[in-house]
Amino acid sequence: MVLTREDLKQVAMLAQIELDEAESNELHSQLNDLLQYVGSIDSIDTENVEPTFYLLPLKNVWRLDEDSQPPLAPDYVFQNAPGHERGFFKVPRIL
């Protein structure tokens, strides 16, 4: 087993996803199968090989530091929000 139960719990916490018991059991075995499978790339020689993070030779594409696009109108900003009040997104109490 590459991924222990504790690891899975930790990863689910990092990803902020609640898992019930049945899901955890299933995912634990599926992820271990998958990790074992993808681990097969270990045997490929990548000594002195540069990584490819992106495919095009584009680096740091910035736009000019000026108004380019008008912002969304507040009605649009909040139209999909599960909770909002007086022009703010509403979330559970934090402090």
Binding site: V38, I41, D42, I44, T46, V49, E50, P51, T52, F53, L55
Partner: peptide, 10 residues
């Protein structure tokens, strides 16, 4: 490691 293998495929 995967990003390096990706270079090999390219």
């Amino acid at each position: 490691k995967a990003t390096k293998v990706r270079t090999l495929i390219r």
